[in-house]
Amino acid sequence: MILIPCPNCGPRNSSEFTYEGENKERPNAATVTKAQWRNYLYLKNNPLGWTTETWYHSSGCKKFLVAERHTMTNEIRSTKALGQQGGAS
C-alpha cells in the first residue's frame, strides 16, 4: 500500500485516492486537428522512472493533487496541491 503524502491531510494510504494519471493540457477545441485531439485523448507518457501524475483524494479532502512518483519503486518524492505553491514531501 503506497503511502501518499496528501498536502492537506498528511500521509494516507493510496486506497483513499483515485489515480488520474498524467494530466495533459487540453487543446483548443475550436482549432484542434484529429491527430492533436486523439493524441490528447490516448497518448500518455509511460515513463520508467519519475513521473508527474494527478491523484484525487476521494476518501479524504476531496482535492486533486499532483505527485512525483517513481514507477519502479513507487517512491513518492513530492506532492503538491493543485493551485498551491510548494508542497509536502
Binding site: 491531510c9 494516507r12 494510504n13 486506497s15 483513499e16 476521494s58 476518501s59 479524504g60 479532502c61
Partner: peptide
C-alpha cells in the same frame, strides 16, 4: 479526520 471508515468516507 476524514478517511475511509468501514470503507465509507
Amino acid at each position: 479526520f476524514r478517511s475511509s471508515f468501514a470503507r465509507l468516507v
